[in-house]
Amino acid sequence: AVSDRLIGRKSVVMEAISPQNSGLVKVDGETWRATSGTVLDVGEEVSVKAIEGVKLVVEKLE
């Protein structure tokens, strides 16, 4: 599936994300709604860990 190619990809937070609120990330020039178990600020680099419905699950790059 097209979405499977996103797992493991680097992306950049475009709208802040917290455990309570989804935000936005940009992956390969496309904007996606995303969630995370931690707070992520605009501009942080993250990695796509999973896809749940139409949202990406991301975490901060170490």
Rank of each mutant, 00 (worst) to 15 (best):
S18A: 06
S11M: 13
E52C: 14
K55V: 15
V42A: 07
K26W: 14
E30Q: 10
K10W: 07
L56Y: 00
V58H: 00
V2E: 10
I51H: 05
A16G: 08
T38V: 11
E44Q: 10
S22N: 10
V39F: 15
L61H: 08
S36P: 00
V2I: 13
E30V: 09
W32E: 09
K55N: 14
D4R: 12
V27N: 03
A1H: 12
N21Q: 14
G23S: 01
D4E: 13
K49P: 01
V25H: 01
Q20A: 11
G43N: 05
D4I: 12
G37P: 09
G53S: 04
S36N: 00
K10A: 08
A50H: 07
A50W: 08
I7Y: 00
K55D: 09
G8F: 00
S47K: 14
S47N: 10
M14K: 06
D4S: 13
N21Y: 12
G29Y: 04
L6G: 01
E45I: 15
G23H: 00
R9H: 07
I51Y: 06
K26D: 10
L61C: 10
D4Q: 13
V13R: 00
V12L: 09
I51K: 05
T35Y: 04
V27P: 01
W32N: 08
V25G: 01
S3L: 14
R9L: 10
T31D: 12
V42N: 03
V27I: 14
E30D: 09
R33G: 14
G8A: 02
S3T: 12
E62L: 12
G29A: 05
V57L: 08
V46D: 01
E44S: 07
V12S: 05
R9F: 06
V39D: 11
V13K: 00
R5S: 10
S36F: 00
D41R: 11
L40R: 00
L40A: 05
T35A: 07
L24E: 05
S22Q: 09
V25S: 02
V13C: 01
E30K: 09
E45D: 06
T38Q: 15
I17S: 01
V27A: 04
D41T: 11
T31E: 13
M14E: 07
E59I: 09
V42W: 02
V46K: 01
I51N: 04
R33W: 14
N21G: 10
K26A: 11
M14Q: 07
L6S: 03
S22K: 04
V2L: 14
A50E: 06
K55E: 14
L56K: 03
E30W: 06
V46R: 04
L56I: 05
E44G: 02
T35F: 03
R5K: 10
E62M: 11
A34Y: 00
E15T: 10
I51Q: 06
G43W: 04
G8D: 04
L6Q: 03
V58S: 01
L61E: 09
K60C: 04
V48D: 01
S47M: 15
T31I: 15
V48Q: 01
A34K: 01
V57M: 06
G43A: 04
V57A: 05
V54M: 14
S18I: 08
A1D: 11
V58G: 02
V13H: 02
K10R: 13
S11Q: 01
S18L: 06
K26L: 15
S3A: 13
K26Q: 12
E62Y: 11
K60N: 05
E30T: 07
P19L: 06
L6E: 02
G23R: 01
V58F: 00
G53R: 03
K49E: 06
M14W: 07
S3Y: 10
S36V: 02
Q20H: 12
T38S: 14
S18D: 08
A34S: 05
A50T: 06
G29M: 05
E52R: 10
E52A: 10
V58R: 00
V46Q: 00
R33P: 15
S3R: 12
E62V: 13
N21I: 13
A50Q: 07
T31K: 08
K26H: 09
D28G: 08
K26R: 12
E59D: 09
V25A: 04
A50V: 04
R33D: 14
G29R: 03
T31W: 13
E15L: 08
S11H: 01
S36L: 02
E52D: 14
T38K: 07
L56H: 04
V57R: 08
D28I: 03
G37F: 11
T31C: 15
K49T: 13
I17E: 02
K26G: 07
V39S: 13
V13I: 05
N21S: 13
D28Q: 05
K49H: 07
S11R: 00
E45M: 13
I51V: 13
S18P: 02
G23N: 01
V12K: 07
G23E: 03
E62N: 11
A1K: 12
I7G: 02
V58K: 01
V54G: 15
W32Q: 09
K49S: 08
L56M: 05
L40G: 03
G43K: 02
V2T: 12
E59G: 09
G37Y: 11
S18Y: 08
K26V: 13
E15P: 00
S22H: 10
K10T: 12
V27Q: 02
P19F: 04
V46W: 00
L56P: 03
R9P: 03
Q20L: 11
S3N: 12
G53K: 04
G8C: 07
N21P: 01
V13F: 00
S47L: 15
T38R: 07
A34R: 00
A16Y: 08
K60G: 06
T38A: 11
A34I: 01
T38I: 09
I17Q: 02
K60H: 07
I7N: 02
K60Q: 07
E59S: 07
V12D: 02
S18R: 06
E45Q: 10
Q20E: 13
L40Y: 05
W32K: 09
G53T: 04
L40Q: 05
K55C: 15
S47F: 15
G8V: 03
K60M: 06
L6M: 08
V46T: 04
P19H: 05
L56R: 02
S36M: 02
T31G: 06
G8L: 00
W32S: 08
V42D: 01
G37L: 13
E44T: 12
V13A: 02
E15V: 11
R33Y: 14
I51A: 06
S3C: 12
D41E: 14
G53Y: 01
I7S: 03
G8P: 03
R33T: 14
V46S: 03
S18T: 13
D41L: 13
V13M: 01
N21L: 11
V39H: 14
V25T: 03
L40E: 03
